[in-house]
Design a protein around this nucleic acid. Structure first.
Length: 660
RNA sequence: GCCGCCAUAGCUCAGCCGGUAGAGCGGCGCAUUCGUAAUGCGUAGGUCGGGUGUUCGAGUCACCCUGGCGGCACCA
């Protein structure tokens, strides 16, 4: 007998081997009919599977949130069945559920077409209508290998070969069709419903390795109701509108063109945005004890060989040869340059931690298929810095960095999506003992800074050390690494960085490579999508447009604009002989945060009517008042913070306050 | 780089089974001075990403190149 504890706390006994369905039936026949999955001590099981033991027990219907993953997984199987029915000879490989949907990788010589997707989708719906029962069988591993080989499913056989010989494997039948799968699954295809849609067709390498065969991946999205599917499609469409490439064009921020692919032509408005962010970052770094430097753009190949970059990274480096035969490389990163500056002159332990920052323009030959708007480019600007410190300073510096990063993200309206720790790669310098220490230290730094969850990424570290990665999301949910913190014992060694310790001995510093935005370009891209182009006042390329209603107000409008400019605001005037309706519409669409409307009335009274983007009210103020208000509101968040503190004591004593 | 798709006026897009290109927005011009998301009228822009081939004839078919998009791989 097994004891089951139900969600309401009640307990009941059942025979050994009772299935979830039998348990459901004992409660209510209707529940047995609706039961899609059962949960036993947190583990999801098929309803027809004999319960292996007692414990906390719950019956899930298809509409439950926890069943959604299974619904999507089932949908991937139904798609595989449909594909094999329609395209005999196609081999199946793997097909998991993913965020919002599922995919399945198929091996087939002939490529699928977009038209095929419609056919497959249609057939999937038929399979749902057939209500094929889904049944689990347990097979011996070797028999499974032999069977899948015999039916020409080489990939499946290969997967099973990777399973330890002692283990059995589960095979799921779905009507006549079957697939190797761990499960769980719903009781029949009808449970999946029809709220799914095949969305895209893509290539994907077998087992994620580009040396392997390329399979055809079909992606789909699946939901428990038609309404949710509609909502999802709508959400994606909305998100596509805020694509930074579209907004960049519409707002005239930047452009890209063939002759310089992967490199950005910043237009005046976009460059204003860039400079605003750069200036903000510079202040934050200054305040946090960094010193800023500028290292050369090109350096001799020999230096890159010494640092190790040539061996590990030369494929991605732009190089050129001089007439005198020197081979120079455009810097793909700033670290070797910074070490040269560190090495110039003897350093003392008193100089540490030395935080050396640079807005470093880096160039990397990225694979053509990797380029993506201004997120992934070949020429970009890192908000890079290297902290040279003693080993016992690593933790404090790391924590300090993460705090700064979180503060910057907050100021910029960014939400940190994930923190990942990239562990030692195959190609690396430094012995394993050093890596053990480095990996542990970074992990601890993240925890100390209050980051609850750190995802481990085996094999993805830099060649010189592990990386903590800070990921942000774009409009449609893709994540992009922006911030990074890397712990490096290797480069100081390879490039002979040293300092004089208290006892007069020469010691190696440790290097922390760190960036908050990662690249200003990528960070701006994410910001553009997050704000959908409607930037907060301090960032907006044009902060105020002074728009006239009639030409009577032209002189006053010019005067108002000049007064605003005198306080550092970015102001445009619109004196065209157009209706105010049109002006409001145009500047609203251009996402200008404030439209200062002046008509005859305002001009006579020396006032402006402020209209904020997104609201249809207006605020009529005397010019001087409006200028003060807007100047205050346009302060970057860090400036506002320090001014705010000063103001509460003695207005206007901002500088004095900072000196303390 | 790999797989698939796409490439037509500044932008968004229409041009079916091949017979020398259209719309909306934008631009420009004229008129309008009109109080908070589109004033009216008029007008100029493309030879269809580049190339080769098939054809009497190609934006429309085939192939190649280039670029873009979605994935994959890569991302020090």
């Amino acid at each position: 007998m097994i004891d089951l504890i139900f969600p309401d706390g009640s307990k009941r006994q059942y025979d050994d081997g009772a299935t979830g369905k039998a348990v459901a039936a004992s409660i209510a026949p209707s529940l047995a009919k609706r039961a899609a999955l059962v949960k036993l001590d947190g583990e999801l099981l098929d309803v027809d599977q004999p319960l292996p033991h007692g414990g906390h027990f719950e019956i899930l219907t298809r509409d439950s949130l926890e069943a959604l993953e299974t619904l999507r997984h089932d949908a991937s199987h139904i798609m595989a069945e449909a594909v094999q029915e329609l395209f005999p000879g196609t081999q199946v490989t793997i097909g998991p559920s993913i965020e919002d949907g599922f995919y399945y990788d198929f091996a087939r010589d002939e490529p699928f077409s977009l038209d095929d997707l419609a056919k497959i989708e249609q057939r999937m719906k038929e399979i749902v209508d057939r209500d094929e029962p889904i049944r689990r069988e347990v097979w011996k591993r070797d028999e499974a290998i032999a069977h899948f080989k015999s039916i020409g499913e080489a990939y499946k056989a290969e997967i099973i070969e990777g399973i330890p010989a002692s283990e059995d494997v589960s095979v799921y039948y779905q009507g006549q069709w079957k697939d190797l799968c761990r499960g769980p699954h719903f009781p029949s295809t009808k449970f999946v419903g029809k709220a799914f849609k095949l969305t895209k067709l893509a290539g994907a390498y077998w087992r994620g390795d580009h040396r392997n065969a390329q399979l055809q991946r079909i992606y789909g999205t699946a939901w428990s109701s038609e309404a949710e599917l509609e909502a999802y499609i709508h959400r994606i469409e909305e998100a596509e509108r805020r694509d930074h490439r579209k907004i960049g064009r519409a707002m005239d921020l930047f452009h890209l063109q063939e002759e310089a692919k992967g490199m950005i032509f910043w237009h005046p408005k976009g460059w204003t945005l860039f400079r605003t962010l750069e200036n903000y970052m510079r202040r934050r770094l200054d305040d946090d004890g960094y010193v800023e430097v500028k290292a050369p753009q090109l350096m001799d190949r020999e230096l890159w060989e010494k640092s190790g970059h040539w061996q590990k990274f030369s494929h991605a480096m732009f190089t050129c040869e001089t007439e005198e035969g020197e081979v120079l490389a455009v810097k793909p990163m700033n670290c070797p340059g910074h070490v040269q500056i560190f090495n110039h002159g003897q350093k003392s332990y008193r100089d540490l931690p030395l935080r050396m920052a640079e807005f470093g323009a880096c160039h990397r030959y990225e694979p053509s298929g990797a380029l993506h708007g201004i997120f992934r480019v070949r020429g970009f600007t890192q908000d890079d810095a290297h902290i040279f410190c003693r080993e016992d300073q690593i933790e404090a510096e790391s924590t300090k960095f993460v705090r700064l990063l979180e503060s910057v993200y907050r100021d910029c309206g960014m939400e940190l999506h994930a923190v990942k720790l990239a562990l030692r790669p195959e190609l690396r310098f430094g012995d394993d003992g050093v890596w053990d220490v480095a990996e542990k230290k970074l992990e601890r730094a993240a925890r100390n800074a209050g980051i609850a969850h750190v995802e481990m990424l085996p094999g993805e570290g830099a060649f010189y050390g592990p990386k903590l990665e800070f990921h942000l999301r774009d409009a449609i949910g893709r994540t992009w690494q922006c911030g990074t913190l890397q712990l490096d014992y290797v480069l100081p060694e390879r490039l002979d960085a040293e300092y004089v310790a208290e006892d007069g001995s020469k010691q190696r510093p440790v290097m922390l490579h760190r960036a908050i935005c990662g690249s200003l370009e990528r960070f701006l891209g994410v910001m553009i999508e997050n704000f959908a182009g409607a930037f907060p006042l301090w960032l907006a390329p044009v902060q105020v447009t002074v728009a006239t209603i009639t030409s009577d107000a032209d002189d006053f409008a010019r005067k108002a604009a000049a007064a605003l400019r005198a306080r550092g605001l970015r102001v445009e005037t619109d004196l065209r002989n157009e209706k105010i309706n049109l002006k409001v519409r145009e500047h609203s669409l251009a996402k200008v945060p404030v439209i200062a409307v002046v008509g005859r009335r305002e001009a006579d009274l020396g006032q402006v009517a402020l209209r904020r983007l997104g609201s249809d009210g207006q605020q009529v103020l005397d010019l001087a008042e409006a200028v003060n208000l807007l100047a205050l509101q346009a302060s970057p968040p860090d400036v506002a913070r320090s001014a705010g503190g000063a103001e509460s004591q003695s207005p206007g004593a901002v500088g004095a306050m900072e000196a303390g």
